[in-house]
């Protein structure tokens, strides 16, 4: 379960503070979800489309970076230049397809990057520094760690179903969902038990102040990036 977060952390070119990553995630999320397609906001959207590309490059996933950048740019340009010139049902079709990709895509990639490149320890330490209460921090860190696991679980369940030739010809969607969801729920409650045992061993329940060995600190780049994100949000909301 650890593999997802650990392998990527070692080979980053650019090490960002988790606070910076959160700022990027929020900015890209807000601008891509609710940005307009005209004027200054369209330029902001174009800038935000570059962000996932740069983030993926920084964890050395060149191929993924190029492919996703091509798709995202195609959809955003499509929104800007094709949609105003089409009408009727065609307009609606392009609108929906491009809309789903360009609005959820960048946020999804940024979120994936944050989960992938931040270790749980870093995340908890930073949340502690920002004075979030434990009651929110611990569930959230568990969530962050659980998302990649969920995907792995889903893939292995799908494999298992293929192996036994279930799932190709199911007519009733509820049966299909039951076949997927029930094993996931089973493993989820198992993982919950395992994690509580593990965290007890690590002394999370001791009620003392937590110590850590990961190095967290804002560097020059962090300040520049946070300032840039804040500036973008200000431009976004004021104009």
């Amino acid at each position: 379960m650890e593999t997802g977060s650990r392998t990527a952390a070692g080979k980053e070119m650019l090490k960002l503070d988790p606070r910076t990553k959160l700022a990027i995630l929020i900015t890209v999320g807000i601008i891509m979800m609710s940005g307009k397609l005209t004027g200054i906001e369209y330029i902001l959207r174009l800038i935000c489309t570059c962000v996932p590309f740069l983030l993926l490059i920084s964890v050395k996933l060149y191929k993924t970076a190029v492919i996703s950048a091509l798709i995202l740019f195609a959809t955003v340009l499509c929104e800007g230049f094709v949609i105003p010139n089409t009408k009727g049902i065609l307009n609606l079709m392009i609108m929906i397809i491009c809309g789903v990709i360009s609005r959820f895509g960048p946020g999804y990639i940024c979120g994936w990057y944050v989960v992938r490149s931040t270790s749980v320890s870093e995340f908890v330490t930073v949340m502690e520094r920002m004075h979030f209460p434990n009651i929110i921090t611990i569930p959230m860190s568990v969530m962050f760690r659980y998302f990649p696991t969920l995907k792995e679980e889903y893939l292995s369940i799908r494999d298992a179903m293929k192996m036994r030739e279930i799932g190709q010809s199911i007519k009733n969607p509820f049966t299909y969902i039951e076949y997927i969801l029930v094993p996931i729920m089973m493993s989820t409650s198992q993982i919950a038990n395992d994690l509580s045992a593990a965290s007890l061993t690590k002394g999370l329940g001791a009620g003392r102040k937590r110590t850590h060995i990961c190095s967290i600190g804002m560097t020059c780049i962090d300040y520049i990036l946070i300032a840039a994100m804040a500036a973008m949000l200000v431009i976004f909301f004021v104009f």
Binding site: I138, P139, M140, V142, M143, T188, L195, S196, S199, L200
Partner: peptide
């Protein structure tokens, strides 16, 4: 609240949120 509860909250919220 115990640690166990917080972990249960986290993990099931994740599952619920994804669905």
């Amino acid at each position: 609240f115990e640690i166990k509860d917080l972990i249960t909250v986290g993990i099931f919220t994740a599952l619920y949120f994804v669905v």
